[in-house]
Amino acid sequence: MTAPLDVEPSALSADPDAVTNAESSKAVEGRSLKQIAWMRLKRDKVALGGAVVIVLLILIAVFAPLIVKALGHPPNDFHEDLLDPTLLTPKHKYGGINGSYLLGVEPVNGRDIFSRIVYGARISLLTAFLATVLSVTIGTVLGITAGFFGGWVDGLISRTMDILLAFPLLVFAISIGTVIQTANGAVLGLSGTSLSVATLIFIIGFFNWPYIGRIVRGQTLSLREKEFVDAARSLGASNGHIIFKQLLPNLAAPVLVYSTLIIPSNILFEAALSFLGVGVRRPTPSWGSMLSDAVATYSIDPIFMIVPGVALLITVMAFNLLGDGLRDALDPRAGR
């Protein structure tokens, strides 16, 4: 997996039509939207900061085993000797933070919080990315289908989206999560942590697609009426050609912006489900379940609550910053 930044230019490399269509082509002559966007983004230090943090987080997630080997202790190893035997909180001040345990130790079992945060980044990013890919894929396909074909197809898809949007999402997600957790055998060939992660990805991804579906449908509806589509059609282009060569490239920008903005909400969603106990299986570290564990002790050992919370904050904020930056860069009306 590469950083969204690397993806971005190629996703927009698209087609010259993208430029002819973009309203901004009037403002800056001779430059493609891609170039303009890239230029703007480069100037947006805050967004770049977000991007850098995201790249770092991805590197941390990818190289978690190496990082932990160098700077921490195995994430599931217990260190009861570092705890006060009556209260089961870290013996030393500040949650047991020292040179060897960079972010302190967990109460009750003395696990290295640093290592668990590092490994937690994996779960967090993996579920959020894959769930986003899932909802973007479904949303784009169905959104284009609905917008392009119209009629009963549009009716069916739009009503489905209405229904899904009316679902009390969290209640439903917890319900499915619980049912799957009760399954202690294999379901569809998956079990244990991989089953719980797959479930999370499915729940988060599936219920989010209508949001992107609506946007894509709306964009498709307006694009369908544009001159360049008419032109292509009058030249005898097939539906397939129009969808893939004319519409899709023009949808890339909003889809990209939206994807960047739903990743952080997906991260929070995963954390919320883990917080409520229907996320990943123990002992796989997850920031949400760390926060949930911290509830019992936060009043006497706040570090264990603060560390995963701040990790979540930084990650989510980085994605929000980048998403904002991308939107500003790609939205021709921004910054004028």
Binding site: N76, F78, V108, N109, N184, R281, R282
Partner: peptide
Amino acid sequence: KTAEALQQGLKRVGINAQIVAVD
């Protein structure tokens, strides 16, 4: 937490246990 404690102890001799938690 008990299940995690057991799991961790057993892992030291190569007994790998998966936790199944239900209501």
